[in-house]
Simulated scan of single mutants.
Amino acid sequence: MSTVKVRAIVTTGYGTNCEREMAHAVKIGGADRVDIVHLSDILDGSISLKDYQFLNLPGGFLDGDNLGAAQAGAHRLKYAKIKGKEKRLIDEILEFIERGGLILGICNGFQLLVKTGLLPGINGDYTTRLVSLTYNDSGRFEDRWVTLKANPNSPCVFTRGIEYLEVPVRHGEGKFVTLNQDVLKTLESQNHIVFQYVDPKLGEPTQEYPLNPNGSELAIAGITDSTGRIFGLMPHPEAFTHRTNHPRWTRMDLPEEGAGVQIFRNAVSYLRQS
């Protein structure tokens, strides 16, 4: 049996509001230690990513979504220097990736990953911004449950063994778009696409609203980098950790543990084996 102790960090501050849900999901997923840490504590040097293997970026409204969702937060990650060190926060994150750490960004956390350029990370490029998340086609905040289909050919370590997943979305800027068609084709051909919104009756990706709640290109709900160790998605698996979270739990025969936990179990399992 592996003796690796999995230490996870969940960031908070500047407008995040899903950190407790995410920390709870990571703990249920099997992590030995889960710390909720304010980003300012990393920036002032009192907390270091070197002490963790699993970085979680939760949902919320970073900086009030000023300039666009997570845009101001992305500038903080890219340009803010860590006190007492001649390096930026993004440099510490890049070192974290190089050491083999896992990064999960959900909703606002996903927006943060794409706007810093950490995703899609094509061929190991974590600095070039190639994709974004913009306003939903509906023109309003979407709060509903959706069905996702996982790409079995994706290298994503978080979705192993998952075929379909039903979880909620709650966002106003969740439409996945790419810089151009070449980027979209690369994401598809290199299996960076992890989850797509699907019609639950047909089990296939759809552009039909509200099954695709935001109008994302190719119905993309989540993507990974080339290594499969960085994963971002708009829907909220951390919001489905118990059967009573499901809106139809009284009418369905559901297991006690919510299906969203598997995302976190997979992450912890990967780290124990690495």
Rank of each mutant, 00 (worst) to 15 (best):
E142C: 09
L133R: 00
P168V: 14
P152K: 12
T147D: 05
Q181F: 09
C156V: 14
I162T: 10
E142G: 04
G172R: 05
L179H: 11
P205R: 04
S154E: 06
P205N: 11
C156D: 12
Y197E: 04
N180F: 11
I122M: 09
S189C: 06
E208Q: 10
Y197M: 07
T186G: 03
K175V: 04
E188I: 12
L179Q: 15
T178P: 02
F176S: 00
L165S: 05
G174H: 00
L187H: 01
L130D: 02
K149I: 13
Y164P: 01
T127F: 09
W145E: 10
L179G: 06
F158L: 12
W145T: 11
G139N: 06
L187C: 04
V198A: 02
L148T: 08
D199P: 03
V169H: 00
E142A: 10
T128I: 14
G172M: 10
G174D: 02
G161N: 13
R144P: 06
R140G: 09
F141A: 05
V177E: 06
E173C: 03
D125N: 15
N136Y: 01
A150R: 02
V131H: 00
A150G: 05
T147I: 07
L202Q: 15
N180H: 10
P152Q: 14
E166A: 11
P200R: 09
P200Y: 13
I122C: 05
V198F: 02
R144M: 15
D125S: 10
F141Q: 08
G139P: 01
Q181H: 12
H171W: 07
K201D: 15
N180K: 08
S189Y: 06
R129S: 10
D143K: 08
C156P: 06
L179D: 09
G124P: 00
S189F: 07
N151P: 06
R140D: 13
V198Q: 00
K175T: 03
T159D: 06
I162Y: 07
K149F: 02
G203A: 12
E204R: 15
I193N: 00
Q190N: 12
Y126K: 00
Y126I: 02
Y197S: 02
R170M: 14
E208G: 02
Q181E: 15
P205Q: 10
E208P: 01
P155W: 08
N151Q: 14
V183N: 02
N153G: 08
V157F: 07
Q207C: 08
V183P: 00
H192T: 06
L148E: 08
S154W: 02
E208A: 11
E208T: 12
P205G: 09
Y197W: 11
T147N: 05
N151E: 13
Y126V: 01
A150N: 05
T206A: 07
F158R: 03
Y135S: 12
G203P: 09
V167Y: 03
P152V: 13
N136M: 03
Q190F: 08
T159M: 07
T128H: 08
L187W: 02
D182N: 09
H171Q: 08
N151R: 11
